[in-house]
Design a protein around this nucleic acid. Structure first.
Length: 474
RNA sequence: GGCGCGUUGGCCGAGGAGUUAGGCACAGGUCUGCAAAACCUUUUACACGAGUGCGAAUCUCGUACGCGCCUCCA
């Protein structure tokens, strides 16, 4: 039984999908106006772990993720541009080019981190659902909401009337009357709104949005969709509400997800999602890492500093998804060493000398333990502790090759660390290793040391053990 | 103002009333032709104050500090 912390109700609950074999999973994807920063990537590693955990429990997971390629306003109060417009201006491209470019960049980053692509919907060029490919569906929802009296039209926009939903805001637990109006200074107030919490479903290309370059015709006038509608529309036309699990960052709880719930439940009269699972943020110097603060690092920065992308993945797995984590290069470096040690352990599969007494090791028990930890609200740090303890305990009596490789494959299914996919050293290295073995047998220490040095220069460290030489890449 | 999450050793981080987290780093030792690896050992912990318990890092209350959200965000 998988247990997950459900933001709706704020406690850990047993997870059971509506269909006992299938899970409908939806993830709020990125806004593609810039490179993903590693805090964003932490969110997607968390989603990936959730997906892998569900699959390991035997569920067939249908996973859909959107891409926001329109309509989120920037924080520049005077410019009135959205983030894509801003990115386009900065780079001298069209908004469409900007979106394309950063979608490709996002795919590259997530591939490098072994994040499985969503499998529940495939757009024209990527496995994500672009908001701009669902304009009609978004308009359909607006039509429904107008018909049912949940929306009203002003000169600037069509708004959702939050007062019409008796349980509006149930995800936050905060009373509407307690909310601070325009908590951020850059929030633009439209005096034609009935309530400050009413949110836009459709903006007309008038006033500050007159020159907005992404716009579509609609029965109510030329314009573009509001900030929250895309997810409701995409879920409706792909997975169909109600879904089992909806994920996203904690920053979405109060506004984006609250409004998604309101729209969907008002338009279709159906619950949107049974479970809401939110990840906490990555911090830098005790502040949230974010694009708008400019205090962020990208995967490119990580690679430039000489780290493997998977070291970052391992770092994320070492902390719990619901806890803020302070990013430090020092801790990435620690994770990188940890990964290298795991890789060296995995590389033992190419080295017969240590494989003896294999039948003593019960990989199944370890895997079950690891799964138990994952099923307990994705306790990835605990899984790694279990694995580390296991490795230490079995150091002296490693196992028969075939079982070992299968075990590594199972670990990769859960962790995505590519431990089962490692290549053997080349014939040149092997030859040097053999020569050194002969030199040692002949007690020719100077030749032996020279060969060890030579191998080290080629990136292979040799250690002498009771069972003979073992190598590891450095 | 409201809502939410935190404060664990040199760094990162689990756990969560009595018994080892784990990773990385550091020191000493064993082993070794020399190294290294491995193994063993040791040292630095649970923000502060009060309360409830036989017993509290773990529960309760309070205080301090930090982070996030309240129409940009993962």
């Amino acid at each position: 039984m998988i247990r997950l912390f459900n933001t709706l109700g704020r406690h850990i609950q047993d997870f059971e999908p509506m269909d006992p074999n299938r899970v409908k999973l939806y993830t709020c994807g990125p806004t593609v106006y810039d490179f993903a920063q590693i805090g964003n990537l932490r969110a997607f590693v968390f989603n990936d772990t959730l997906r892998r955990t569900l699959e390991s429990a035997g569920y067939r997971v249908r996973h859909v993720m959107n891409i926001t390629d329109v309509g989120h306003l920037s924080s520049d109060a005077d410019s009135g541009e959205d983030k894509l417009e801003k990115g386009a201006k900065r780079e001298g491209k069209t908004v469409w080019d900007v979106a394309d470019f950063y979608i490709r960049a996002f795919e590259k980053d997530t591939t490098a981190l072994n994040i499985l692509p969503p499998n529940g919907y495939h757009g024209k060029a990527e496995p994500y659902a672009r908001a701009t490919d669902f304009i009609n569906e978004q308009q359909d929802i607006i039509g429904l909401l107008l018909d049912k009296g949940f929306a009203y039209i002003t000169e600037q926009a069509i708004y959702f009337e939050t007062a019409k939903m008796s349980d509006y805001g149930k995800l936050t637990g905060q009373k509407s009357s307690d909310k601070e109006v325009a908590a951020r200074p850059e929030v633009v107030v439209d005096n034609n709104k009935k309530s400050p919490q009413d949110f836009a479903l459709w903006f007309f290309t008038v006033g500050r949005f007159a020159s907005h370059s992404m716009h579509w015709t609609s029965p109510w006038g030329e314009g573009f969709p509001g900030w929250h509608l895309e997810c409701s529309a995409i879920i409706h036309s792909t997975l169909k509400e109600p879904i089992d699990i909806h994920t996203g960052g904690v920053d979405h709880i109060g506004t984006h997800h609250t409004n998604e719930i309101a729209q969907t439940e008002a338009a279709f009269g159906t619950k949107l999602a049974n479970f809401w699972v939110h990840n906490e943020h990555l911090l830098v110097q005790d502040e949230k890492m974010s694009k708008s603060k400019g205090n962020f690092f990208t995967l490119e920065d990580v690679i430039k500093r000489g780290f493997e992308p998977l070291a970052l993945r391992l770092l994320f797995l070492q902390s719990h998804y619901r806890k803020q984590t302070n990013f430090r290069w020092e801790s990435l470096s620690a994770a990188s060493s940890f990964l290298k040690n795991l890789q060296a352990w995995a590389d033992l599969k190419f080295q017969d000398t240590l494989h003896k007494n294999g039948s003593d090791v019960n990989y199944g028990v370890v895997l079950e333990k690891i799964k138990e930890c994952l099923f307990d609200d994705l306790n990835t740090p605990e899984t790694l502790a279990v694995l580390s303890q296991f490795i230490q305990k079995t150091e002296k009596n490693r196992v028969a090759k075939d079982n070992f490789q299968t075990f590594l494959e199972h670990l990769d299914e859960l962790f995505g660390l590519d431990l089962s996919k490692r290549a053997d050293v080349g014939s040149e290295i092997k030859s040097l290793i053999n020569q050194r073995q002969i030199a040692r047998q002949n007690e020719n220490w100077s030749a032996s040391d020279a060969l060890r040095n030579s191998l080290l220069h080629k990136g292979v460290e040799i250690n002498d053990t009771e069972q003979g030489q073992i190598w590891r890449r450095v």
